[in-house]
Computed example of a mutant assay.
Amino acid sequence: MRFHTRKWVKPEDLNANGTLFGGKVLAWIDEEAALYSIIQLENRRVVTKYMSEINFMSTAIEGDVIEIGIDVFKFGKSSLNLNCEVRNKMTQETIVTVDNIIMVNLDEHGKPKPHGKTKIEFVKDRLAKKEKDN
């Protein structure tokens, strides 16, 4: 799993118990899944269709640095299936896991659109290919 994003847990991210609010971390996960999918599918029109069971395993407190990892485990016709792990950067302790997030590629009318992707692509490789082709 690749960990792309780090977040610093600030006072506004906490619940009444003084720990990381679950809704805040879910918003971060959803945003990360969308950004990852947009980059993979090379399309800004990507939406979250489904999120499986969310497993809160530990928590974070103010001042902790967390990181969000996303991985593709299946390429559908117009979708990507992702899994996610959020962990404490310093201790590597898992905070949250989501086994399946389905992101759907859309056309300009908001309808599912085939993306034609079958494997993970890295932006650096796309840029190198464009340079080579030119």
Rank of each mutant, 00 (worst) to 15 (best):
residue 2 R to F: 05
residue 5 T to F: 01
residue 5 T to Y: 03
residue 5 T to D: 11
residue 5 T to V: 12
residue 7 K to C: 09
residue 9 V to I: 15
residue 9 V to Y: 10
residue 11 P to Q: 09
residue 12 E to V: 07
residue 14 L to T: 08
residue 14 L to N: 08
residue 16 A to Y: 12
residue 16 A to T: 09
residue 17 N to V: 12
residue 23 G to K: 04
residue 23 G to A: 06
residue 23 G to R: 02
residue 24 K to Q: 14
residue 24 K to G: 01
residue 25 V to C: 03
residue 25 V to W: 01
residue 26 L to A: 01
residue 26 L to T: 02
residue 26 L to E: 01
residue 27 A to W: 00
residue 29 I to W: 00
residue 30 D to L: 01
residue 32 E to Q: 07
residue 34 A to Y: 12
residue 35 L to E: 12
residue 36 Y to W: 07
residue 39 I to W: 03
residue 40 Q to D: 11
residue 40 Q to R: 07
residue 41 L to V: 06
residue 41 L to S: 07
residue 41 L to C: 11
residue 43 N to T: 05
residue 45 R to E: 15
residue 46 V to D: 07
residue 47 V to R: 07
residue 49 K to A: 15
residue 50 Y to G: 05
residue 52 S to D: 15
residue 52 S to H: 06
residue 52 S to C: 06
residue 54 I to R: 00
residue 54 I to T: 09
residue 55 N to L: 13
residue 55 N to S: 13
residue 55 N to Y: 14
residue 56 F to Y: 13
residue 57 M to N: 14
residue 58 S to W: 12
residue 61 I to K: 15
residue 62 E to P: 03
residue 62 E to A: 13
residue 64 D to T: 10
residue 64 D to S: 14
residue 65 V to G: 06
residue 66 I to C: 03
residue 66 I to F: 04
residue 67 E to H: 06
residue 68 I to G: 12
residue 68 I to P: 09
residue 69 G to F: 02
residue 70 I to R: 08
residue 71 D to A: 12
residue 73 F to K: 03
residue 73 F to R: 01
residue 73 F to I: 05
residue 74 K to H: 08
residue 76 G to V: 04
residue 77 K to L: 05
residue 77 K to V: 04
residue 78 S to V: 07
residue 79 S to T: 04
residue 82 L to S: 12
residue 83 N to V: 03
residue 84 C to N: 05
residue 87 R to A: 03
residue 88 N to S: 07
residue 88 N to H: 10
residue 89 K to R: 13
residue 93 E to C: 01
residue 93 E to G: 00
residue 94 T to H: 04
residue 95 I to T: 04
residue 96 V to P: 02
residue 98 V to Y: 05
residue 98 V to R: 01
residue 100 N to G: 00
residue 101 I to F: 01
residue 102 I to A: 06
residue 102 I to C: 07
residue 102 I to P: 02
residue 102 I to D: 05
residue 103 M to Y: 09
residue 104 V to N: 10
residue 104 V to M: 09
residue 106 L to D: 12
residue 107 D to N: 15
residue 109 H to W: 09
residue 110 G to E: 08
residue 111 K to Q: 15
residue 114 P to K: 14
residue 114 P to S: 14
residue 115 H to A: 11
residue 115 H to Q: 11
residue 115 H to D: 07
residue 116 G to P: 10
residue 116 G to K: 08
residue 117 K to Y: 12
residue 118 T to E: 14
residue 118 T to N: 10
residue 119 K to E: 04
residue 122 F to G: 00
residue 123 V to M: 10
residue 125 D to K: 08
residue 125 D to Y: 02
residue 125 D to W: 02
residue 126 R to M: 14
residue 127 L to M: 12
residue 129 K to D: 11
residue 130 K to V: 12
residue 131 E to F: 13
residue 132 K to P: 12
residue 133 D to R: 13
residue 133 D to E: 15
